[in-house]
Amino acid sequence: MKEDEMIICRCEEVSYEELKTTAAKYKCSARELKLRTRAGMGYCGGRSCRTMVDKIAATSANDRNRTCVSLKYQPPIRPISFKNLGG
């Protein structure tokens, strides 16, 4: 396996290359990069890959105002089974 094919988001199997290419093309924020590639949108809620996606976005983006943000997290932060949703 080459470095470009290496997985960054384990849940959605998003590769380093896909993230790099998308970040370079759109020069977008980490949040937009997530929405475009689905990295961080899988089962674990981005807990595993968030820091990596942030770094890739920061490399390409004009994402200067990174120090003060409201982090976008959607509840539930742990997956809930359909069974439990009913209750």
Binding site: G45, L71, Y73
Partner: peptide, 27 residues
């Protein structure tokens, strides 16, 4: 081994403001 970062999802869900402080390990 890439180090640790603060796990703060619940504070984010609650609407708490965040700051990126590298010395503290992240947001």
């Amino acid at each position: 081994a890439g180090g640790l970062y603060p796990l703060a999802e619940l504070a984010a869900v609650a609407g708490c403001p965040f700051y990126l402080v590298e010395e503290l390990g992240g947001y």
